[in-house]
Design a binder for these strands. Structure first.
Lengths: 247, 247
DNA sequence: GCAAAAGTATGATTAAAATCATTTTTTATT
DNA sequence: AATAAAAAATGATTTTAATCATACTTTTGC
């Protein structure tokens, strides 16, 4: 019953126990590329993809590097960020199984303007850029889906941008916590199902470590959240949602 | 020699003298939709598009409204913004001839999350969303181009986001001036070829009117720019570029 | 042509968040 | 297990930019 398995993966894409069983990587039904390839092209995609593994902390690609291919996440979590100087980072988004890394712009410069780093062990489908371009020209549903995918990313980016300008750090931290909860869900224990450093949470919020820390302390004191190491429990989501809408 | 005309338009899409001659609107070679339609589909696109005119200040669509169609700018300039409260705005980008307004997200909610306002008289090609969806499914080069277009927008948005977090207002104002110069070019007189209120420049920079004003005064005093009404002259672009890179 | 509304200009004050400095704890690495 | 390196935790200080207040000027609608 392979169809059944696929359904489960779609329902909870972070089914890591299942993932680890996939010793040979993507089964052609999970990553964006394979998922959106017509049966005829799927074999072609399968033949031209490479399965790559990255351990926690490994840089998948870095700002300034030449763009050579596309990465399709099928297990683990990746942070996508832009740096400034060499200390300050802004995490633009997190990529989970099913997400895409490393689109190229139209500019002449085929260099990454962002970097991608595994924040837990990650496996990806990788395809060469030339192959991918060819795929896009012949595999129309793929192009259509990709267009839709970017549309969504764009809306997400616009919202985030507006938040950065209009909301206080306090509101943004509340927003961050709810977003993480939304994106990663809760573990059995009830904490947000991802382990991030405070540094990374700060970088995702667009603030400094110190300010993030203080704001979180404030929320802990107010019993809106509970924290134990890297486990974060949201105790009053409703109240956090209110705070996320105030200046 | 219609091909020749098309070439000229591609070279300088704001050839407004040519535009005003187009009494009946888009000639099927300018707006994104028509430009990227194969000859066979172009007639179809032509038959299903409406030409709409908006005067200066007119709202093309507003946040919260139902998404009903797509807009393709072929003359004039549009500001695309997100509001907060009902006073604060962030201008995400400006749309010029050839640009697209109003993509929809995948969510169930088919509502605009941004608004578009003409900042000078604007004409657009408008097509119904259903028609556009059909177009995307049959007209593959259009889908491909659209995907590329969004890719670029995304890169632009990511850069802007990073700037908002990492750069001071002073740097961002310098950046804004260079961006405007880049996007709109210089008039014969030498000023940036667009008339924006200080309010809008502030909203594009992601700051308040007062702070923008003071920063511009500082640049005027330092003889980096010269201002006469809404005409802005960049006197030392190199220095501005340096400032745009400093914290 | 006049009134109302936008937009421009500028000083004074406040508040928010970054920066700096230092200690403690946890996590990797050899 | 030892040691180095990150990450976490906080207090104190400084800086930046938002907010508030008010006057003046230019557009624009009736």
């Amino acid at each position: 019953m392979p169809t059944f398995v696929v359904e489960i993966i779609f329902f909870d894409r972070r089914l890591t126990s299942y993932m680890s069983a996939l010793k040979n990587g993507c089964d052609l039904s999970l990553c964006f590329l394979c998922r959106n390839s017509l049966p005829g092209w799927q074999a072609l995609a399968g033949a031209n993809r490479k399965n790559l593994r990255f351990k926690k902390g490994a840089v998948i690609f870095d700002e300034g590097e030449d763009i050579k291919g596309m990465y399709f996440v099928y297990s683990g979590i990746v942070k996508v960020q832009r740096s400034w100087g060499n200390q300050k980072q802004l995490i633009l988004r997190f990529a989970k199984p099913g997400d895409i890394l490393g689109y190229r712009g139209l500019g002449d410069e085929k260099k990454y303007t962002i970097s991608a780093t595994a924040i837990e062990p990650v496996t990806v489908c990788y395809v060469d850029l030339n192959f991918f371009e060819s795929m896009l020209l012949i595999n129309h549903p793929l192009t259509y889906q990709l267009m839709q995918y970017y549309t969504n990313e764009l809306q997400y980016a616009e919202k985030k941008m507006s938040n950065l300008v209009h909301l206080s750090v306090k509101a943004r931290v509340a927003e961050t916590l709810l977003t993480l909860n939304n994106q990663f869900g809760k573990s059995k224990e009830g904490n947000i199902n991802v382990h991030l450093s405070r540094q990374d949470i700060a970088a995702f919020t667009g603030t400094t470590y110190e300010t993030l820390f203080r704001t979180m302390q404030e929320y802990i004191r107010a019993k809106l959240i509970r924290v134990s190491g890297k486990k974060i429990f949201l105790l009053k989501e409703k109240r956090l949602a209110e705070l996320a809408m105030m200046h």
